[in-house]
Design a protein around this nucleic acid. Structure first.
Lengths: 213, 213
DNA sequence: TGTACATCAGTGAACGCGCGTTCACTGATGTAC
DNA sequence: TGTACATCAGTGAACGCGCGTTCACTGATGTAC
């Protein structure tokens, strides 16, 4: 407690005071997130991100190999937050309830609406990042949340093919709704749709009905 | 028929012979389409497109105001093709059949798979193009194809709110499936899904079941 | 049919710009003794 | 506790590059008489 200013820079305190502010990596990611949000994916530059973080344009290269790695960092962080939000959605309702399933979808849609630029980036980053096994794993982690909610609702094991199939249907649905919403906010579709009713309706349709051929 | 080479450049014949080849606009759009397909949206430049069309880097400005207008041209052309494909899908099955609805979706998915870069561009072009009333109209045109197929299937007028709602559900679905497919080809989802059965199943679920709350 | 002229659709050289990245450097931090 | 030193995390200047766009131009085309 005697060290107020100099060392390891407590989050947010006197960000310019410390020579090594120790927070640069996180601050750069936050800056890029902002830039992506306001200028769209690809609308960011290392230089601008450094400027926003208050460091020289060379500083980012102490934390990231290159431009691509910064983007991957942003995506990785965003996917963590997305998964956490989905899990929180499910946890707010009884295990196995239809509401829990709908809530997972609602968290997903809320994320897309709240950070459309980052959301687009997350799903558009396939160009040249086919490898990146950590990102792939995080994607599976998100899908896993859907699968578990669906499995609990149908009272089947998560590995059951029917669970996988219906979970994927739900995910397609929610994913498409998210994209349509952020792409043409309020346009094209004349019907104003309340998310919760909508999501409950579609969850019911996909989980309760006999959708087998 | 006496004019084989010089005038108005018949489509594709001796593209270098004519000084005014008369086809530049279309050729530039084709070049950009290719670039977007191989380098992703934003991965194109006016200079490179001109190079591919075999003209100087200033030539495109005789046909387009600026970079943005070229992109809009590509999107506009792509939306025309998408609508035509959707209409052809519907027309291949009896009016009012579930198959006609599924075929519209299948055409949509096929477009996304066939030209993932352009598909992404079409739906990601909202940054700074909120205006562009012609593109908006074309978007509504595509949605109209879905609406008409659904309306015929339910034997209701296209303006019916339930038709609009179910058409939007279907569209979300197909849109999400398309994006998921092109974003993580074959990954994440373990289930290999045959599009036709899948689309028929989901069309049935959305159109035939009581999805009202 | 022939000629004069306006218009159209290109050229190619040039501009200023911001970017990604590298480089030698330097001041602050953490550690061994 | 004090000192020497390796390491870490920044600086700032510089590089080469490709881009978007403009400009004065020129050759080909279409049209009026």
């Amino acid at each position: 407690m005697p060290d107020e200013t100099p060392p390891l820079a407590p989050p947010g305190v006197t960000p310019k005071a410390a020579y090594h502010h120790g927070d640069l990596r996180a601050q750069l990611i936050a800056a890029v997130r902002e830039l992506v949000e306001t200028h769209g994916p690809d609308g960011f530059s290392v230089a601008e991100a450094a400027r926003r973080a208050g460091v020289s344009s060379a500083a980012p290269y102490k934390h990231f190999k290159d431009r691509q790695e910064i983007l991957r960092g942003v995506v990785s962080e965003a996917m963590d937050r997305l998964r956490v939000a989905m899990e929180a959605g499910a946890a707010a309702h009884p295990v196995g309830s239809l509401e829990a399933v709908a809530a997972v979808g609602q968290a997903y849609v809320a994320f897309a609406k709240g950070e459309p630029g980052v959301f687009r980036l997350v799903f558009g980053l396939t160009e040249g990042h086919e490898d990146a096994p950590d990102l792939l794993a995080k994607g599976e982690g998100c899908f896993g949340v859907v699968v578990r909610a669906v499995a609990a609702c149908l009272d089947l094991p998560p590995g059951d093919p029917d669970v996988q199939r219906r979970a994927y249907m739900l995910w397609s649905f929610v994913h498409g709704h998210s994209f349509l919403h952020i792409d043409m906010k309020t346009k094209v579709t004349t019907a104003r749709i309340d998310d919760w009713d909508y999501l409950m309706g579609i969850s019911r349709a996909i989980l309760m009905d006999a959708t087998r051929a």
